[in-house]
């Protein structure tokens, strides 16, 4: 039972942030495909916007990987609080990853429209999307610092 709770942290970190990223990349990808169907030369400008919501999944995967290593080498009998520490360590990156990826995708879709209409301002759309990334990074850092 204790092990299950600890592993739940791993599952949450990897799954929720991965789901957020999949949704996010899907949203921006569809909008970008619409632009590319008219103007394939914009691929380079749109690539980063599409890829950006994918980073949350990577953060979740890194925390899950580190957490897995800690759990496998831990003596849970010696430290009963370990299982909860492990579970809670996965939560910040999981939830910030899930929500920030979806909201970043919404900014990204607007950025795609901006890049299509005003190519000179494409970087501004990217910068706005990066602001959302900041909160995913905070979630990642908190999870990292909470690793047992």
């Amino acid at each position: 039972m204790n092990e299950l709770i600890a592993y739940s942290g791993v599952v949450l970190a990897a799954a929720l942030s991965g789901i957020g990223s999949a949704i996010g990349v899907g949203l921006v990808g569809r909008a970008a495909a619409g632009v590319l169907s008219v103007d394939p030369k914009k691929f380079g400008k749109l690539l980063l916007l599409v890829a950006l919501p994918g980073t949350q999944g990577i953060y979740g995967f890194v925390i899950a990987f580190l957490l897995l290593g800690r759990i496998q080498g831990a003596d849970m009998a010696a430290d009963p609080s370990f299982v909860w520490k492990a579970f809670l360590a996965g939560c910040p990156v999981a939830f910030t990853g899930l929500l920030s990826a979806i909201h970043q995708a919404k900014v990204g879709v607007s950025g795609v429209a901006l890049a299509a209409k005003q190519p000179a301002d494409a970087a501004k759309g990217l910068i706005l999307a990066v602001f959302v990334e900041f909160y995913a990074i905070l979630g990642f850092l908190v999870s990292f610092l909470m690793l047992p």
Partner: peptide
């Protein structure tokens, strides 16, 4: 329906 592909395409077509 989110019209994501449609709106992406329209954004590019608006240049016309």
């Amino acid at each position: 329906s989110l019209f994501l592909f449609a709106n992406g395409r329209v954004s590019a077509l608006e240049k016309d």
